[in-house]
């Protein structure tokens, strides 16, 4: 029982990938999803977005409703029939699919299919760096940013350096790291509404950490964290803005 899943063996560069957008991106940050797909297309890949997709099942899974999580996860299984990588613009949802689906489907008739789909899941920045080995040309104005690492990207997907490596490729972007980069922002799905005061204290510490970097932009790979951090930044009338890394990279490449 380890924290992160074993490192993915790097497959040969595919010509086509699936994109699983996630429900939060779908509803709150669709531009981040589009930007993710455009980054992949810019690398010469064909991107398939199955219209039947909805959610990885994590909200129910983490709330103790495994049957409901299974039902929703199962509805995704037939969307990725070809043996291609599935790229997800979220460390958390990718972690659910990679790490928890095999457990969730254990002993189910479609376990083998679920394990197969699960084994093809990649977090977006991990895929860009490890599989595509992208080289980014920065066309944007000089700016300072900081990076917020999501807990599940770090600890379930083992994605720590990849997004920062991408940001460091940008010639005009100065990356100032947070003092407590590894610390949770306090979103935690239903935690944020079950324990709003603690969640507020956590995001308060996170906002203070972001502010001390002097950055005007906080970039992250997970929309759950962004909803929380942006909500707190906006609620506190802070001049800093949170943005999904896919969207940020796309902006920099277009100048």
């Amino acid at each position: 029982m380890t924290t992160a899943t074993a490192p993915q063996p790097t497959p040969p560069r595919p010509s086509k990938v699936y994109f699983f957008g996630t429900c939060l991106v779908d509803l709150f940050y669709p531009e981040a999803g589009m930007a993710g797909m455009e980054l992949l297309k810019a690398q010469g890949l064909t991107v398939v977005f199955p219209q039947g997709q909805s959610c990885c099942g994590q909200p129910a899974y983490n709330s103790g409703y495994r049957d409901e999580a299974l039902k929703v996860a199962r509805a995704q299984l037939d969307l990725f029939p070809e043996d291609l990588p599935i790229v997800v613009p979220s460390g958390s949802c990718a972690g659910m699919m990679r790490k928890h689906w095999p457990h969730l489907f254990h002993g189910e008739p479609d376990e083998a299919k679920a394990v197969n789909v699960s084994s093809r899941v990649w977090e977006l920045t991990q895929f860009l760096v490890q599989v595509l080995d992208v080289r980014l040309e920065d066309k944007g104005e000089p700016m300072r940013v900081t990076w917020h690492a999501s807990c599940h990207a770090q600890r379930e997907m083992g994605v720590v350096e990849e997004p920062k490596a991408l940001l460091r490729q940008l010639a005009n972007v100065e990356l100032v790291e947070l003092k407590r980069e590894k610390e949770c922002c306090g979103f935690g799905g239903t935690f944020a509404v079950r324990h709003p005061e603690i969640s507020a204290a956590m995001v308060g510490d996170k906002v203070a950490d972001i502010e001390q970097t002097g950055a005007r932009r906080v970039v992250s790979g997970d929309c759950g964290c962004l909803l929380n951090i942006n909500g707190a930044l906006e609620g506190g009338r802070k001049p800093v803005q949170g943005q999904h890394i896919a969207q940020f990279l796309k902006e920099r490449l277009h100048g």
């Binding site: 957008g21 779908d26 509803l27 669709p30 531009e31 999803g33 507020a200 308060g204």
Partner: peptide, 16 residues
């Protein structure tokens, strides 16, 4: 403690 989250006017499904 936070501003209200804003739903996008079109979903990723729509945009795709």
């Amino acid at each position: 403690v936070r501003a209200k989250p804003r739903f996008a006017s079109r979903t990723l499904h729509d945009l795709a």
